[in-house]
Design a protein around this nucleic acid. Structure first.
Ligand SMILES: [Mn+2]
Ligand SMILES: [Mn+2]
Ligand SMILES: [Mn+2]
Ligand SMILES: [Mn+2]
Lengths: 220, 220
DNA sequence: AATATTTTTTAGTTGGGCCTAAAAAATAAA
DNA sequence: TTTATTTTTTAGGCCCAACTAAAAAATATT
């Protein structure tokens, strides 16, 4: 069965909202991410349920069916492979690729994605450190930690970000925070939960809790 | 002003139908290429005229306005650049790329196209020998001849095809006819207008008029 | 337990892009 | 120059994906 752009976007967003926990997703949560109104979401959820891509009963919230999850993972796979392409081959910065990938993720051609994957030498993660689902629909679990949860005196490596927004990524770039940077957490400041961090052994700088929350690391 | 996929497809098709001659395009001609019904075309032509992209008066046919032609050339440029990408970088055959390019041509990002163009080293023609419009909207005139118009005893080089259909391109491949092949027209057979041609100095083969009509060459 | 608030759904519209059937205009044939 | 045929347009509808306003259900507060 074929999928429209709108349907694909809904499935992708429901997937994102479901990641991690196991609860049903609320209509309002979907409405916020799709940038539509709750009434429109209700409409679409009924349609998606009819096609067997979500389990939905009114007032009970929604979750993806196995079929729906497979579609969502396919879209995410395409999105992230295209992002790699845009950064690695086309020379875009990591804060410039999300919007373009939002369009490219809907291009329908299995052989194109296979060839793209090969062309990019089978990347495991995208330019934001997010894992790329495998061809057969498995999302690798990377198990990164949030920088905000790292204790003082620990060293870690910046592996990814939990937010794609250009404004956030540009700030990181300005702060010399890019994938692979080594971070030495010197101090956690109780007052505002900001942290003092030495980036690649440079003199320490402050990182706000809001920023640290959205930085993913692994312990060194 | 932004353009929908449907609008872009109409403009592109009107452009194609206008190439060469100077007459207005009929509603039916557009309907055939868009794979829609004449009534739907009439609807769309009214809308395109309102947006200033075509000149249209009912029962009089349609032609692109300068603004419409600019949009159409942009779409054609993207289509052909993506086709080069698919063949040169992704390893597709020339008969496999048209459908995918039909999707990719609607991706909206000027900087992406600039970077793609550079990545491909500013190609002048696509995998079918068609010229790629310049960034500022000029379609290069290549002035190729139809193989069916070449006189006996002349030598020429295969520069392009006048048809994108996979079935046609596959036949050419099977006949060893690819871009750059040298063709020596030995004989024009009056009975069926087929021609006897030596391809790259191999023993002569027959090429039907139907095929020769759709092969573009320049004299050697 | 009753009432207020928030969330979600239903009802009714809209616009885009398509359709069929019927009417009107243009063109061809008699 | 009538009449027949073809082309194009209009009229009316359908489906998709969104909307607003109002109703209903779920949840929170008093
Ligand atoms: Mn992204
Ligand atoms: Mn990403
Ligand atoms: Mn093509
Ligand atoms: Mn082409």
């Amino acid at each position: 069965m074929s999928t429209s752009f709108a349907e694909e976007n809904y499935l992708k967003i429901i997937y994102r909202l479901s990641e991690g926990h196991d609860e049903d997703i609320s209509t309002n949560a979907v409405a916020e991410l799709t940038q539509t109104k709750a009434a429109s979401v209700t409409d679409m959820l009924r349609k998606l349920a009819e096609k067997g891509w979500v389990n939905y009963q009114k007032y009970q919230g929604v979750r993806l069916s196995p079929a729906g999850e497979k579609i969502a993972l396919g879209i995410v796979r395409k999105h992230r492979l295209w992002e790699v392409f845009l950064v690695e081959k086309m020379g875009f910065n990591w804060d410039e690729v999300h919007e373009i990938a939002e369009q490219l993720e809907h291009i329908e051609s299995d052989s194109l994605i296979d060839k793209l994957d090969e062309f990019l030498e089978f990347p495991k993660t995208d330019p934001h450190g997010d894992p790329i689902p495998t061809k057969n629909g498995v999302m690798p679990e990377l198990g990164y930690l949030h920088l905000s949860d790292i204790k003082a005196d620990k060293r870690c490596v910046l592996m990814g970000v939990a937010k794609d927004s250009a404004i956030f990524l540009q700030l990181l770039t300005k702060m010399q925070l890019s994938l692979g940077a080594t971070l030495h957490v010197l101090e956690v400041n109780a007052f505002d939960r900001s942290i003092s961090v030495s980036i690649d052994n440079a003199p320490a700088v402050f990182i706000s809790h809001e920023v640290a929350k959205n930085i993913l690391v692994k312990l060194a």
